[in-house]
Design a binder for these strands. Structure first.
Length: 317
DNA sequence: AATACGGGGCC
DNA sequence: GGCCCAGTATT
């Protein structure tokens, strides 16, 4: 859960997760849909699918979580950081972790402008030496916390840092320029969401690949033009009223800003989707279906809208 | 070596 | 509105 996610965001999810999946077996037995439902809102959903898969691998083998770094590394979703964190913090083995905090700390100590493969090797050798005297897990947690609390990205508190006497960045008073800032500009996307309503059911599909894989989404078309949407409805023989245009919701992820325009259509009868395999979901069951936060929000907006007696669906000529 | 992959919190 | 976060898998 903590991969690229703040402790504050994780804490409540972790508590609920451990209550629902207290053992490897209980996680292995659960459906992927329920696993994703528990993860909903945390993002990076491949993490949920991977930990589920790992639980199933261990459960099938009848083994516990391995203590060994290289064995941990074989499990899906466990990379160098997580393998080192588990083997050191959970099992006390002398393996240094290298996370974003520690990369920043070492860049400053050695005045490295940026991180690369070469630095990875140098850092491992260095940390191996530093970690030797005491408990590896404590050292690793202390280093990460140093980065989180003292050697912060912006305005680091060098006066309180135990490394300040040997830190080259601090020596040259360049702690604010190290490591180099990276910048990438935002890419705007525009998407129409086709929200078909029939009585108390809405039409959604389970995403089979790419972004939000395994989660439920509305049929969507690129762009904000209405005509392709009407074309789509015609192709699926929809007898509809609408659209009812809901407020645009921005779906922000990594470098993208996807402006989602929800278009609601009232259908006289159900339609079936060709390749995507749509599912008409009763609104009182919608909570069981995992979906991204922005889609959950749009469902909420839709429900508010449908509750109003005077909601009018435009009839297009 | 780059890029895909979420979402919430902070300034 | 832009940036960041106890990274990993894929290209």
């Amino acid at each position: 859960m903590l991969q690229q996610t703040t402790i504050a965001a994780v804490r409540d999810y972790y508590t609920a997760w451990m209550k629902r999946f207290p053992t490897i077996n209980s996680l292995a037995q659960a459906s992927e849909q329920e696993v994703l439902r528990q993860w909903e809102g945390l993002g990076y959903y491949s993490r949920a699918r991977n930990i589920h898969k790992s639980a199933q691998v261990l459960d099938a083998a009848g083994t516990e979580l391995p203590k060994d770094y290289k064995e941990l590394l074989k499990l899906p979703g466990i990379g160098p950081y997580t393998a080192a964190a588990i083997s050191s913090i959970a099992f006390g083995l002398p393996h240094p972790v290298i996370d974003g905090n520690i990369k920043r700390i070492l860049c400053r100590i050695f005045l490295w402008p940026k991180w690369n493969k070469e630095r990875e090797t140098q850092a491992s050798a260095c940390l191996d030496k530093w970690i030797k005297p005491g408990p590896a897990g404590d050292f690793n947690e202390a280093m990460m916390e140093l980065g989180q609390k003292i050697c912060t990205k912006s305005s680091p508190q060098c006066g309180q840092c135990p490394f300040n006497s040997l830190c080259l960045a601090h020596k040259e008073n360049r702690q604010n320029e190290i490591p180099e800032a990276t910048s990438s500009r935002q890419i705007i996307k525009k998407t129409c969401l086709i929200i078909c309503v029939h009585h108390n059911h809405i039409l959604m599909t389970e995403k089979k690949q790419g972004l939000l894989k395994g989660l439920w989404v509305f049929p969507a078309l690129q762009g904000h033009e209405l005509s392709p949407v009407l074309e789509w409805l015609k192709k699926h023989d929809a007898d509809f009223k609408g659209p009812l245009v809901l407020k645009i919701q921005n779906h922000l992820y990594t470098k993208y800003k996807d402006q989602l325009l929800p278009l609601v259509f009232r259908l006289e009868s159900t339609i079936s989707l060709n390749e995507e395999k749509g599912c008409w979901i009763p609104l009182d069951k919608i909570g069981d279906f995992p979906m991204a936060s922005v889609y959950r929000k749009i469902v909420g907006e839709l429900e508010k809208c449908l509750e109003k007696k005077n909601t009018r669906f435009i009839c297009l000529p």
